[in-house]
Amino acid sequence: MNALEAISIDKRYANHVALHDVNITVPEKSIFGLLGPNGAGKTSLIRIINRITGPDNGEIKFFGDALNPEHVNQIGYLPEERGLYKKMKVGEQALYLAQLKGMSKFDAKVKLNEWFERLEIGDWWNKKVEELSKGMAQKIQFVTTVLHEPRLLILDEPFSGFDPINTAIVRKEILRLRDQGSTIVLSTHNMGSVEEICDSIALINKSRVVLDGSVDEVRRRFNENEFLIRYEGSAVSLANSLWTNFELISNSRDEDEGDNEAIIKLRDERTLNDLLNTLTPNVQILEARPHIASMNDIFIQAVEQSKHTS
């Protein structure tokens, strides 16, 4: 079952189009990366899912049902720009936010104590938020977002403001929540964490989805027919041996090992065998494998490409 489906969502504001015919599908119990450059429309989509605003056109389905006001209690949202009441005590504030999500005060207290204990922040309960550091406040915000055990969790840049240790803690908690059955929509610019924890992604640029699918599939598909060849020999002779049907994307030399790494794209239904046949007379091949791009490269390339097409 899909936790979330956005079906041809349109949203326009007075001066610009925020979302145009956006379709995304988030499978249940997975981590979904919602990617895109600043101003692409991610926040608009997230706000529509949270029912903060409504779409001009299109429909959101939440576990198969049309999204309705009852569902907000089953969603947890950590906005990118976030804050807490500065003058309020940590515990009181967490209870308040949990109750606004429909939890009883008692349940909220029990769960909060659990979380505070696990994250070892129990002694913060009576501190005012203004006494906390930014990272501490972020931690509290994370807890208040997940406290009501939402079926769908929307985290916008959850790692920003955390040091590496706390980033690791939060990452661990996100994975734990997924394993316990939550579905997580993660919006981030941190492509490393996308590769590590996302199961599938959608890349939005200029109000449109320009790329989507499972992370593995996207990475494979994106650099289809590109192969990484590690070889011994001169880069010049490698380049000379390539015909027009093979395109040398890049070549780099590892001085320590004394070998080269070339990335070569195959055209016109050429196969790896054809490439190897072409190369073997000229260089010594050490390794050949499909080239899988990093999410970082994919992000940059996808955004560049959509710039040209639009």
Binding site: R51, V72, Y77, R82, L84, Y85, L100
Partner: peptide, 16 residues
């Protein structure tokens, strides 16, 4: 204004 500058408002209006 406090809620707006604190940015807590977005969290709250995702609940109410």
């Amino acid at each position: 204004i406090e809620e707006k500058t604190n940015r807590i408002v977005e969290v709250i209006i995702s609940s109410v």
